[in-house]
């Protein structure tokens, strides 16, 4: 009997937790499909309404939604691919080669991982203006290539998964070092690529402060900055605002639901291991 009670209370806790996690998504959908006047009445709408298309048309007349999604895709994709390459290359050197100052440089990286990004914000902004990169996607992509965690992660993974013997035998066969990296190491570390790619892509896709500072012009807004533009629109239309938020959120949610095991292990593993 007590077993049944504890089982029921266990599920009660979990179901309440899950409902609280999911409810705001439902609420977002309810508002994205209702007219503003229905939302702004007492009691408000509790069920999805008929305005799905109209609200999204209003989004399109306020911001360049697809342009902003495109900018976010460009920024997140290029910096993710760049980080995978730069971090695995450097991580490979840190894991497998001996050179002077190696430990010092690696230690420097670890220390800077602890420094909050806001410390360098203003000089970074100054450098971007001096380079003439203000309102240019490069201003987000290029600094996005720096990822101290990525190097740390790659070094760990390569140290424990790429055997020295394999590299030595490839070298005896006359492979150049860059070929050893590319042909031997990279295929082995593909799982680490998947983890780092998910972490980096999500970070770049969701980043707000830095793009807000350097991407002022509407034509270069990422989706997060564009969403902020919806709030500042002249007429405060909650149906329209939540419609934009809904369509900006849903792609990532669907990808997550498809690959949720990989996402969860990647996004938490990274944190726990470091």
């Amino acid at each position: 009997m007590s077993n049944v009670i504890s089982k029921i209370s266990l599920y009660a806790v979990l179901v309440i937790g899950a409902l609280l996690s999911i409810f705001p998504f439902y609420w977002m959908f309810v508002m994205a499909t209702n007219h503003n006047s229905v939302i702004n009445s007492v009691p408000p709408a509790y069920l999805p309404g008929p305005e799905l298309v109209t609200n999204f048309q209003n989004v399109l007349s306020n911001i360049d939604f697809f342009g902003a999604i495109g900018n976010s895709l460009i920024v997140a994709t290029i910096s993710t691919i760049g980080v995978l390459f730069l971090c695995s290359l450097a991580g490979f050197a840190f894991a497998k080669y001996h050179f002077k100052g190696k430990n010092l440089l690696f230690g420097l990286l670890l220390i800077t991982m602890m420094v909050p990004p806001q410390l360098g914000l203003i000089p970074q902004y100054y450098i971007i203006t001096q380079l003439g990169w203000l309102n240019d996607l490069k201003a987000v992509i290029v600094p996005g290539l720096i990822d101290a965690f990525g190097i740390f992660w790659m070094r760990q993974y390569i140290s424990s998964n790429v055997p020295d013997e394999l590299l030595d035998s490839a070298k005896i066969d006359g492979c150049s070092r860059i070929r050893v990296y590319w042909n031997i190491a990279v295929p082995i570390i593909l799982p680490a690529f998947a983890t780092l790619a998910i972490i980096k892509f999500m970070y770049m896709w969701n980043d707000f402060l830095w793009p807000l500072v350097v991407l002022r012009d509407e034509s270069v807004h990422t989706i997060q900055i564009a969403l902020r533009g919806l709030i500042d629109a002249y007429v405060k239309d909650n149906g329209m605002i939540l419609s934009g938020t809904f369509w900006a959120t849903i792609p990532l949610v669907l990808i997550f639901l498809l690959f949720n095991r990989l996402f969860i292990s990647s996004l938490t593993q990274g944190a726990v291991k470091s």
Binding site: G17, S21, M202, N206, L227, A248, L252, V253
Partner: peptide
């Protein structure tokens, strides 16, 4: 349950 609990983290802070 794990997926449901984790879902909010996939949402951007702006959203």
């Amino acid at each position: 349950f794990r997926a449901a609990f984790f879902l909010p983290y996939v949402t951007s802070t702006v959203a």
